[in-house]
Amino acid sequence: MLFNKRTERYFVWVFFPLALLMPLFLEQNTFYVSKLTTVMIFAIFVMSLDYLVGRCGLITLGHAMFYGLGGYIFVIIAPEYEAVNFWVYTFYICVIAALVALIIGFLVLRTSGIYMIMITLAFAQMAFYYFSDSIDFGGNDGVFIYVKPDTSIFGISLFDLDNPIHFYYLCLLSLFNTLFFFRLVIRSRFGRVIDSIHENPGRTTALGYNVFVFRLMAYTMASALGAYAGYLFTLQYGFVNPSMLAWTTSGSALVMSILGGMGSIYGAILGTLVYEGLHYVLEHLTEHWLLFMGALIILMVILFKNGIAGYLEKLLEKRS
């Protein structure tokens, strides 16, 4: 059984069927479909961060760099007025992002803890200012994508990216695949080595594994996925802005991942849903939503020891 923890199994069985049917109920209101799409895209990003922080113990505050790069790589390499193939460009973007991650990872993975937080932040800030100051890519005001890629494989178009419902299903599929992918990774030999490194790097080295290389592989993989999420986000509205790379984006992703329950992967989806849901409800209720958001975050940290996923697990344990 792939989704082996009971809570996780429940979550997968409740969330994905619901998400599959959701657009049927929301036909009247395309906004909710788009909103859910945005949340799911961000959840992919948070999941990739959650793997790094929770599973590998590599705390980064620069992950948004790859989220933004996902958009900017597309802007840089794709022709402006010509539809390109979605899958081919997904491949290009992931590979380029992975190469960038390989170089940066090579430098930053020498540090650990707070120092790693700060050095990843440093690289992300450099990228942020590069795109924000440069005039070539729209600078601070951002840049538009005029033509969306088409998604045909062998001449069969699966999704029409201009149709919000189609795009919703593409993102739902991506979300499920990402979760599935991380499950496979975690259960693989690679994943076990990563877990062992997280537990005790010294002993893993003694067992003959090169800790640095394993960490670098994990970092590269998660960064490429982060870029994929950023690519999807850019395609949703066709708008890229340097604020995607801002440290606040990394910060909110980190908050969602901790809130969901670090290292549980599916918790990242929970964390993103809860955070975005609260944000949405509070900002419609009161202008001072920030106050209540802050207070709720504080309350949740104190009440939930291992995030929402941890809380649910404990709840189920008590029941049985």
């Binding site: 906004f31 909103k35 729209g138 601070n140 005001d141 951002g142 802005n241 604020s243 984006t249």
Partner: peptide, 30 residues
């Protein structure tokens, strides 16, 4: 700015606003 398209589409598709007044920031305007 990265939230601007989402909020704009909320006013357009969810609230069906006749007029949309905004914004202050040029990036958000884009």
């Amino acid at each position: 700015p990265e939230r601007a398209p989402e909020i704009a589409s909320s006013l357009l598709d969810q609230h069906h606003a006749n007029f949309i007044i905004g914004p202050v920031h040029s990036g958000v305007a884009m």
